[in-house]
Simulated assay, not measured.
Amino acid sequence: MRHSHITHLWISGVLAGFERLGLDVSALMEAESSLPENSGAAPNAGTMELGDARRLWHRAEALSDMSSLGVQLGLLQNQRASGVLMPICWHSPTPIQALRHIASFQNLISDNGVYRIREDEAQGLNHCDYVPSAHAVPPSQQQILSVITGTVLLLRAISPEDPVLAIHIPEGMAEGNISELLNVTVQPLGLDFSLQLDRARMHRPIVGRDEHLYEINLAYAEGMIRHKREGKSLREQVKQIIEQGPPALVSIEQVARALEVNKRVLQRTLAEQGSSFRQLKESLLKEKALAMLITQREDIADIAQTLGYSEVSAFHRAFKNWFGASPKQFRDIAMT
């Protein structure tokens, strides 16, 4: 099983969950060109770039009237969608070691963010903070909430006694609804998400674990994470070359020459990593367009020229295809 296979299982599970919650998946996937061409509503190959995954969640939030969409989705997720991470956690020596493995191998599933674990021996607590990855597209609170929900369910499943004492969430979220759904104390606290865990319970041995299965799956996951890092390095190199652009004008032939590889070798290697030149180029164009439009607030004509579009109208068409609104409409909505 390649790491991209785990990623697409997770994406497919998320889309299936949205559908079960009554969301129109075809509407969610509108203009989602980062998925494989023949993927349909639930992809069976490939991966989704971070910005596109976050936009998918933002669209889901806009289409749903559920204040706790992330919890509802997390409760529906099939644990098999986490691939090799599940057997590692089930057979870890202790829940705290399982949580450390989640923190280490989380990006086999998604690059959205990582867990940071803090020990508080004096208070008898473990704190587990969720740190979103930096990106031009801001993280979705509901997406993070779905990850938190999955982690809570897993820790309860493997621990001799429930170690989850409280969940800290950003202010303004539906704390009462979340608390009722997860049967846990929920406390609004600043802008971040974190878990407060009973340290003694997190260090108790997991009953029924198999050391042999643990070591086999751990070695397998370590191999996959190395493979993903190598692939990510290649994808970043490709995007860096495209960025030197102007991006819209850069061809795969130019990138292959810059990397001193055959074009078909580059195509095949990217495909093995669950990506493609078109996906990487479009992802970069989206990121730069958003950063220049919203963060830097540059003139639309200047953005089009910087990105390499021969006419502003061509940039308008591309932008509307990506985001369902013109650059001006998108900026007006973002600024209100």
Rank of each mutant, 00 (worst) to 15 (best):
Q237A: 15
V238Q: 02
Q244R: 10
I225W: 08
L266D: 02
R229W: 07
A271H: 09
Q273P: 04
Y220W: 07
G245S: 12
S275Y: 08
P246A: 14
E243T: 07
Q244H: 10
F277R: 00
Q273E: 14
K239W: 06
R235Y: 05
R257V: 05
K239T: 15
K232E: 12
A271W: 06
V250G: 00
S276W: 01
P247M: 03
V255N: 00
L249S: 07
L270K: 01
N262A: 05
Q237E: 09
V265T: 15
V250C: 14
Y220E: 10
R235E: 12
K263Q: 12
L259V: 04
N262F: 04
Q237H: 14
N262D: 15
E272W: 11
Q237D: 15
E253A: 13
K239G: 06
A248S: 13
L270A: 01
T269Y: 03
N262M: 07
L266R: 03
R268K: 14
V265D: 10
L266K: 01
A271N: 13
A221F: 01
V238C: 03
S233D: 13
L266E: 02
L266S: 01
V238Y: 03
E260W: 03
S275V: 05
E230D: 12
G245W: 09
E222F: 03
F277C: 00
R257H: 08
S233E: 14
Q267V: 07
A271E: 11
A271R: 14
S251Y: 01
I225G: 06
A258R: 15
L249G: 03
V255L: 04
E260P: 01
Q240I: 06
Q240H: 08
Y220L: 15
R226N: 10
A258D: 05
G231V: 02
A248P: 08
E253D: 11
A258I: 05
L259P: 03
G223C: 10
E243G: 13
